[in-house]
Computed example of a mutant assay.
Amino acid sequence: MIIDTHLHLIDLSALHYPWLGGAPALNRDFSHTEYATQARRAGIEAALHMEVDVDQADIQAETSHVKAQSLEQGSLLRGAIASCRPEEAGFAAYLERQQADPFVKGFRRVLHVMPDELSESALFRENIKRLAGTGLTFDLVVLPHQIPRAIALVDLAPDVQFVLDHCGVPDIKGNAEHPWREHMAEIARRPNVIGKISGVVAYADSGSWTVESLRPYVEHTIGFFGWDRVVWGSDWPVCTLGGGLATWVAATHALIGGASADERTKLLSGNAKRMWKL
């Protein structure tokens, strides 16, 4: 069984996505129906929706839209990692509303395309601390040079469960392992951070990557976080930029082929079940 902890759905008729204007390959509808057909063929039995950086006015609408789809017969959706704005004063009230909805499993604020100092404001940090004791996670999507800033945030909120997306977004295409490698080892020392094995095919050379070109990055992440602190995600449809869902699932199986059955289960479903109570 595979639980996909990083699925994006795009519905241009229902929501607004300002960033898609600069991403023509992704600037179309990517529906649950399209995803589910591919996912079931690949052995994926459940998924968490990851926010897609919609227009701020559509944040609540995105969660509601995805939740409605989760209620349809045969849906793979089991919860949502919702968008949020911790840098704003209204976060506390927003958090209280989301806590009332068991479909919401956590939050993410896109940081890798934002100014580095966004996560350093006092209000941002105080609001992240509010997640302590809620059971809600916070996904970190940061570039390698931003990982020290993520570490600072993690250290200020030791009772919050963080998830580091996409193996820390390494530049695989550029074969750049430093300082990514050192920063990953350091953030993995924090017990309140989970590593997500996701997205890496989008950072590799789309025409020439192989399992072996991905291996140093995936194995380094798992090696430092350990099998009890890693989860798997497709990053669909972004993974279509690097070969597609079935290709990434096949590469994952090849990458962890030497692991024990128990270790593979932890990565592919067990840790996600435990952390998000799926």
Rank of each mutant, 00 (worst) to 15 (best):
L140C: 06
T221D: 15
W232A: 03
A157T: 00
I172R: 06
D171I: 00
P148F: 06
G226S: 09
I197S: 11
F225K: 02
P216Q: 13
P148L: 01
H183G: 07
I172N: 14
T134M: 00
R130W: 13
E126Y: 05
G233R: 05
K129W: 13
D171N: 09
L143N: 15
R130Q: 11
Y203S: 09
N192Y: 09
G258I: 05
V169E: 15
E219R: 07
N192K: 08
W248G: 03
V200C: 12
A185H: 14
G243I: 00
V230S: 07
R215M: 13
L164M: 13
H166W: 11
P170A: 10
A150P: 04
I194T: 10
V160P: 00
P237E: 10
Y217H: 11
P170K: 09
F225E: 06
H166D: 07
L140S: 08
T252D: 11
Q146A: 07
A185K: 08
V200N: 14
T247C: 11
H253K: 08
V230C: 11
C239L: 04
V200M: 12
N127P: 00
L131A: 02
T134D: 02
D159R: 01
A250K: 09
F138M: 04
E177Y: 12
G244F: 03
A204Y: 10
S198K: 10
P237T: 02
A250H: 10
I197F: 15
E126K: 05
V154K: 00
F124L: 07
V193D: 06
L136Q: 05
A176S: 02
G133N: 03
L123V: 06
P148N: 08
V154T: 01
